[in-house]
């Protein structure tokens, strides 16, 4: 995936939309903040999710970082490679480190998502 073409949440998930399926991962910015990931909790296939609600977590020894679904819908796939090898999130956040796919509900809104430039600005603000 080319990070420039993706959309983002303020909670640092990236989203790639293909038809009615949204693929979700975490951004490089977020991946770099997570040292030594110990556990990735992914939503089960078939689980109903709604935009902005937590549906999983990435954990380090002393932190638990919730994952939020960027869109409404139902989980259609989860990347179990990442669950067994969390290092993929840091190595390749936009590729092999993807986390889950959501089959979007009809009419699910994408309007709240940021484009790459707006997200970059959001990160710059958060870093200060």
């Amino acid at each position: 995936m080319d990070p420039k073409t993706l959309r983002y949440t303020k909670t640092h998930e990236w989203v790639a939309v293909d038809g009615d399926v949204a693929t979700v991962g975490v951004s490089r910015f977020a991946a770099d903040l997570l040292n030594d990931i110990t556990f990735v909790g992914l939503p089960a296939t078939g689980k109903a999710v709604s935009a902005g609600k937590d549906c999983g977590a990435i954990e380090t020894v002393k932190s638990a970082n919730d994952l939020y679904s960027p869109v409404d819908g139902e989980i259609s796939a989860a990347n179990h490679e990442v669950a067994t090898n969390p290092g993929l999130i840091q190595e390749d956040p936009y590729g092999q480190g993807w986390l889950f796919k959501v089959k979007m509900s009809p009419g699910a809104s994408l309007g709240h998502l940021l484009d790459a430039a707006a997200y970059e600005e959001h990160c710059a603000n958060e870093a200060h």
């Binding site: 030594d36 110990t38 556990f39 954990e59 380090t60 020894v61 969390p86």
Partner: peptide
């Protein structure tokens, strides 16, 4: 000496 906490959790 210091324990490996990452390994313990992973």
């Amino acid at each position: 000496s210091r324990p490996d906490e990452v390994k313990a959790a992973k």
